[in-house]
Nucleic acid binder design. Structure first.
Length: 892
RNA sequence: AGGCACGUAGCUCAGGGGGAGAGCGCUACCUUGACGCGGUAGAAGUCGGCGGUUCGAAACCGCCCGUGCCUACCA
C-alpha cells in the first residue's frame, strides 16, 4: 500500500473491515475500571437474539456510537456495554417453528430437550445481530458482552425476585389477564396491541324469570354469554330500577343469574343493561369481585370452549360465536345486529386475538416502585430528553397497574418458586430447596412458569455490571451516563429500569435518557415486513458505505420528529464522503514536501485565508461540541458538513492553491501547509464520531502523532482564537468574488474566459483591503486584469453590480448581450425597490420608532441608506447602458 | 374519547419575534492541474387556513382543516 496516493474515489469496502479489526486488536473499545479518567458509560438496549439489524437498531446504535466516540475522544473513561436479550416468546416461537419443519413438536421433545435446542439455536444464529453492529462501527466493549440468560444475570433475576417477594411486592393471584391462545401464555397489558376493527354489536334478549318479559343486553362477543353470571344495570336507571334483584334465565344453558346494580354501567350505551362475564372481561371481572359473583371460564387455553359451555364444548371460540348467534336467531331472541367499530386486542408477537381470561399468575405490585421512579425524574436525578417525554412517563407511571410477570412458556428465567406436594406450601428461594419449609416433606415441584423477558431487561443497567456482586464496574460505571432508546419501549423498558434501579441500587440507572425518533418509510409509515416497505440497513451500508449511512441517520435525527428515510439523502452523504476523500487526496499531494514547522507562528502574520479558516474551524468545533452534548445530532452533523464542504473545500482549498503551487514564497507555503494539515486533521477528528471509518483511513495517511484518530483528542474550542477581523475581511473578498461570478453567469460569459475587471470603492480602507487581497480575487474570479477606478472613471459600456461598498465593472465585449444586462439590472433594481418599500414602511411608523429596540431601528436605517445608494448606482449604470443604444439592437 | 407531535421550495427536512434556509431534484454554462460522487451561476415558497397578542408573527396564543402517533376504553 502506498501510504500517500489515494484512489480517485472513496471505496468503503476497502476500508471498513480493516479499521474495525484494527481497533478491536488494539483494545481501543475496552473500558478500564482502574482508570483515573472520569467515567462515561452507556448500556446498549439489548437486541433480541432472534433479530437481525433493522433501521431502528441502526439509528439507535449509530447515535450511541456517536456519543461514546465523542466522549472517548474528549478524554472520558468510556464504557459501552453490549449484549443481547433472550426474548422469551419471540425466540421460543422461532425455534418451535424450526422444529416443526423437522416434524418435531416441543411437547413431544420435553422441556429440557427443548431448552437445549434453543441454546443450540442461539449458538448458531444468535450472533448475527452483533456482527451487524460491528459492521455499523459500534465501538462496544465486546469483551464484556452479556446475555440476559447468562449465569450472572440469572442470579440477579433470582435475587430481585426473592427480595421483592419477601417485601410483598411480588404476589401470586387469580386475576384476569391477557391470554394469547396461540402462544399459550399470559401477557402483560403492554404486550397487547389494540387495533380498530369492524365488528358487530348483537342485541340479545335474556328472558326474565317468571314471566314473558325480557331484558336486552348488547355484546360484541356473544360466545361469552355462556360465562355470564349476572346482568348489571345502573342503580339510578329508571328503566331497570324495579328489576334489580330479580333474576334472568340465561338462554341456552338455562342458568339463573341475578340482575345487579353497579355504577360502572353506562346508561347511554346499548340497552343500558350489561351482561357480566367475570372470567373473560377485565371490567366484568371487577364487577364480579365487587359483587361476589361466580366466575365461569368458558374458553380454555387454546381458545376452545370448555365443558362449562355445554353444547358448544370443544368448539373454537369464533365458531362458537357463529353458532350462538344462529341459535339466538332461531329462537327469535336475536333482536338486532348493528355494524360496529371497536378495538380488538392482539398478541404483539403473533397477532392472534387476545382472550382475557381468569388465570393464576404472578404479579409485581408496581405502585410503591413507581413512586420512587417518578420522584427521581421530578428531582432531575434522571433527565429525559426531549422533555416532552417526561409527561408521557409521568402519565403512565401515575396510572400504573400491577405487572403480570409470569409466562407459560419454557424459554426464560424459571420462577424461583416451589410447591410442596404434600401441604401445598409455596417456597420462594434463591437456591433450590431440599424440603418443605413448613411440613419438611421432600416432594417439591418447581413452578413451571418463566418470567416476562422484560423482568430481566429491567435489571440490565446493573446486572450487566455484575450485581448482586459488589464489583468495581458497578462502583465506576453506575449510574450510567445516558440511555439512548426509542419511545416505543419507554414503558416496557425505561420505566421498569427506573423502578428497579432506584429500588435495588438506591440510585437511578442513568443520568440522561435520550429518546430518539422512529425510522419510517418515505411515506411516514412504520417499516414492517408485512408491509414490505423495509429498507435493510445492511444493504444500505454495502451500497453507500457505512459512514454515509451513519451520517444520514445523524443528519435526520432531529429531536421530536420521526425519520422518513430517503435513499437520495444517503446518496448525498456518500458524495460527501467522496468529497472529503478528494480534499484529502489533494491535501496529501501538496504536503509531500512539507518541511514541518518548528517555530511558533504568530497568527497575525498569517495570510487571510489561513486566519479565516482557523477561526471558522474553531467556531465549528464549538458548534459541534455543543450540539453533541445536548443530543442535537442533526445540528452537529450539519455544522461539520457545512464547514468541510462549503468553507474548507469551496473557499480555503481554492484560496491557497496559488500559494501551494507557486514557488516564490517557500515560507508562506510552509505556513499554509501547516495550517492545511492542522485544519484537515481537526476536521477529521470532529467528523470521526459520525464517520469513523473514512476519517481513520485518511488520518492514518496524514502526518500524525498517536496511534489512531479513534483515540485522538477531540478539538477544543478556544475563545481566544476568534479572529473577527479575518471574518470581516474574508466576507468582503467573498462578496466581491460572488459579484463578479454573478455577472459572468448572468451574462453568459464562458467560465474559462479571463476578465478585465474594474472595482470602485469610495472608502479608502475598503480599497486598501481589496488591493491587499487582489490575488484571491483574481484567482477565484478568473480575472485577467484588475484595476481600481474612481467615480469619475466609470466605464460606459460595462456590466456592473453593486455590493455594499464596492461597485464592479466588467467591460462588455462586442459579443455580449446588452439586452441581457438591461434585464439583469432592472431585476436588481426591482428587488431593491421592494426592500426599500419595506424599510420605508417601518421607518414611517412612529410606533416602530418609539417601541422597537434602538439597535433594530438603527439596523433598518442603515439598511435603507445602503439600499438607496445601491438604487442610485444601479439606476446610473442602467442609464448608461440605455444611452449606448437600443438594447435589443445589433449588439443583442 | 383524551393527549402529544407535525403541516416551511417539486421531494426529504432544518430553523425560529425584526433580512425565508439546507440537501436532493430542476435550468444554463464548464474535461479550470482533489473531486462530473465535481465546479459556477440561476429559477422556485401567500412558512396549512382564519382570528388574536405585538411597533413587528413563519415563529407566541386561540380556533379550524389535514396528517401521524400515544394512552384509555365503549359492554
Amino acid at each position: 500500500m502506498d501510504a500517500k496516493i489515494l484512489s480517485k474515489a472513496y471505496d468503503p469496502r476497502a476500508v471498513e473491515d480493516k479499521w474495525y479489526a484494527f481497533w478491536m486488536e488494539r483494545g481501543y473499545f475496552k473500558a478500564d475500571t482502574h482508570s483515573t479518567k472520569i467515567p462515561y458509560s452507556i448500556v446498549i438496549p439489548p437486541p433480541n437474539i432472534t433479530g437481525s439489524l433493522h433501521m431502528g437498531h441502526a439509528l439507535n446504535n449509530t447515535l450511541q456510537d456517536i456519543v461514546i466516540r465523542f466522549k472517548r475522544m474528549q478524554g472520558f473513561n468510556t464504557l459501552w456495554m453490549p449484549g443481547t436479550d433472550h426474548a422469551g416468546i419471540a425466540t421460543q416461537n422461532v425455534v418451535e417453528k424450526k422444529l416443526s419443519e423437522e416434524g418435531i413438536d416441543r411437547h413431544g421433545l420435553g422441556r429440557e430437550k427443548f431448552i437445549e435446542r434453543v441454546w443450540q439455536w442461539k449458538e448458531q444464529y444468535g450472533g448475527v445481530i452483533t456482527k451487524q453492529l460491528k459492521k455499523l462501527g459500534a465501538s462496544c466493549d465486546w469483551s464484556r458482552e452479556r446475555f440476559t440468560m447468562d449465569e450472572g444475570l440469572s442470579e440477579a433475576v433470582r435475587e430481585v425476585f426473592v427480595r421483592l417477594y419477601q417485601e410483598d411486592l411480588i404476589y401470586k393471584g387469580n386475576y384476569i389477564i391477557n391470554w394469547c391462545p396461540r402462544c399459550r401464555t399470559a401477557l402483560s397489558e403492554l404486550e397487547v396491541e389494540y387495533e380498530e376493527e369492524s365488528g358487530k354489536l348483537y342485541h340479545l334478549a335474556y328472558p326474565l324469570k317468571g314471566g314473558e318479559r325480557s331484558v336486552t343486553v348488547v355484546t360484541t362477543r356473544p360466545e361469552t354469554m355462556l360465562g355470564d353470571t349476572a346482568v348489571a344495570v345502573h342503580p339510578q336507571d329508571d328503566r331497570y330500577h324495579k328489576l334489580i334483584g330479580e333474576r334472568v334465565i340465561l338462554p341456552v344453558l338455562h342458568r339463573e343469574i341475578p340482575i345487579i346494580a353497579d355504577e360502572y354501567v353506562d346508561t347511554d350505551f346499548g340497552s343500558g343493561a350489561l351482561k357480566v362475564t367475570p372470567a373473560h372481561d377485565v371490567n366484568d371481572f371487577e364487577i364480579g369481585l365487587a359483587h361476589g359473583l361466580e366466575m365461569v371460564k368458558v374458553i380454555d387455553e387454546d381458545g376452545k370452549m370448555t365443558r362449562e359451555a355445554g353444547p358448544y364444548r370443544g368448539m373454537d371460540r369464533f365458531e362458537c360465536r357463529k353458532r350462538v348467534i344462529g341459535d339466538f336467531e332461531r329462537d327469535g331472541t336475536l333482536l338486532k345486529v348493528d355494524s360496529y367499530r371497536h378495538n380488538v386486542g392482539h398478541c404483539y408477537r403473533c397477532k392472534t386475538i387476545i382472550e382475557p381470561t381468569l388465570s393464576k399468575q404472578w404479579f409485581v405490585r408496581t405502585k410503591p416502585l413507581a413512586e420512587a421512579a417518578i420522584q427521581a425524574v421530578k428531582d432531575g436525578r434522571t433527565k429525559i430528553v426531549p422533555p416532552v417525554w417526561e409527561k408521557t412517563y409521568f402519565e403512565w407511571m401515575n396510572n400504573i397497574r400491577d405487572w403480570c410477570i409470569s409466562r407459560q412458556i419454557w424459554w426464560g428465567h424459571r420462577i424461583p418458586a416451589w410447591y410442596c406436594e404434600e401441604c401445598d406450601e409455596t417456597i420462594v428461594s434463591r437456591e433450590e430447596p431440599h424440603s418443605c419449609t413448613r411440613c419438611g416433606k421432600r416432594e417439591l415441584r418447581q413452578e413451571a412458569d418463566v418470567l416476562d423477558t422484560w423482568f430481566s431487561s429491567a435489571l440490565w443497567p446493573f446486572s450487566t455490571l455484575g450485581w448482586p456482586e459488589e464489583t468495581e464496574e458497578l462502583k465506576v460505571f453506575y449510574p450510567t451516563s445516558v440511555l439512548v432508546t426509542g419511545f416505543d419501549i419507554l414503558f416496557f423498558w425505561v420505566a421498569r429500569m427506573m423502578m428497579m434501579g432506584v429500588r435495588f441500587m438506591g440510585n437511578v440507572p442513568f443520568r440522561d435518557v435520550y429518546i430518539h425518533a422512529l425510522v419510517r418509510d418515505i411515506q411516514g409509515r412504520k417499516m414492517s415486513k408485512s408491509r414490505g416497505n423495509v429498507i435493510d440497513p445492511v444493504m444500505v451500508m454495502e451500497e453507500y458505505g457505512t459512514d454515509a449511512f451513519r451520517f444520514t441517520l445523524a443528519a435526520f435525527a432531529a429531536q421530536g420528529r420521526d425519520i422518513c428515510l430517503s435513499e437520495e439523502r444517503i446518496e448525498g452523504y456518500r458524495h460527501f464522503a467522496n468529497k472529503i476523500w478528494n480534499a484529502s487526496r489533494f491535501s496529501l499531494s501538496t504536503l509531500a514536501d512539507f518541511p514541518g514547522i518548528t517555530h511558533e507562528i504568530d497568527l497575525h502574520e498569517m495570510s487571510l485565508a489561513n486566519r479565516w479558516i482557523l477561526s471558522r474551524f474553531n467556531e465549528t468545533v464549538r458548534e459541534v461540541t455543543a450540539a453533541l452534548e445536548e443530543y442535537r445530532f442533526n445540528e452537529g452533523a450539519q455544522a461539520i458538513y457545512h464547514f468541510i464542504w462549503h468553507e474548507f473545500c469551496d473557499w480555503f482549498l481554492e484560496l491557497i492553491k496559488p500559494v501551494l503551487y507557486g514557488k516564490d514564497d517557500p515560507q508562506e507555503r510552509a505556513v499554509t501547509q501547516y495550517v492545511l494539515i492542522r485544519v484537515l486533521d481537526g476536521a477529521l477528528r470532529v467528523l470521526h464520531p459520525f464517520m469513523p471509518f473514512i476519517t481513520e483511513e485518511i488520518w492514518q495517511r496524514l502526518p500524525h502523532e498517536g496511534k489512531a484518530i479513534m483515540i485522538a483528542d477531540f478539538p477544543q474550542y478556544n475563545a481566544g482564537l476568534k479572529d473577527e477581523e479575518a471574518l470581516v475581511d474574508m466576507d468582503l473578498v467573498m462578496r466581491t468574488i460572488w459579484g463578479i461570478r454573478n455577472i459572468r453567469g448572468e451574462m453568459d460569459i464562458a467560465p474559462h474566459k479571463r476578465l478585465d475587471v474594474s472595482l470602485l470603492a469610495e472608502r479608502a480602507e475598503v480599497r486598501d483591503r481589496l488591493e491587499q487581497y487582489r490575488t484571491y480575487i483574481t484567482h477565484l474570479a478568473r480575472i485577467n486584469s484588475l484595476s481600481f477606478i474612481t467615480s469619475g472613471e466609470k466605464p460606459r459600456d460595462a456590466a456592473t453590480t453593486v455590493l455594499g461598498d464596492v461597485e464592479i465593472f466588467i467591460p462588455m465585449a462586442k459579443d455580449m448581450h446588452l439586452g441581457g444586462e438591461v434585464r439583469r439590472l432592472e431585476k436588481e433594481v426591482q428587488k431593491v425597490h421592494k426592500e426599500l418599500e419595506i424599510a420605508d414602511r417601518k421607518l414611517s411608523n412612529d410606533e416602530f420608532i418609539s417601541k422597537a429596540p434602538a439597535e433594530i431601528v438603527e439596523k433598518v436605517k442603515a439598511k435603507k441608506d445602503a439600499l438607496l445608494i445601491r438604487d442610485r448606482k444601479l439606476t446610473e449604470s442602467l442609464g448608461k447602458i440605455l444611452e449606448i443604444g437600443d438594447p435589443d439592437g445589433p449588439g443583442a
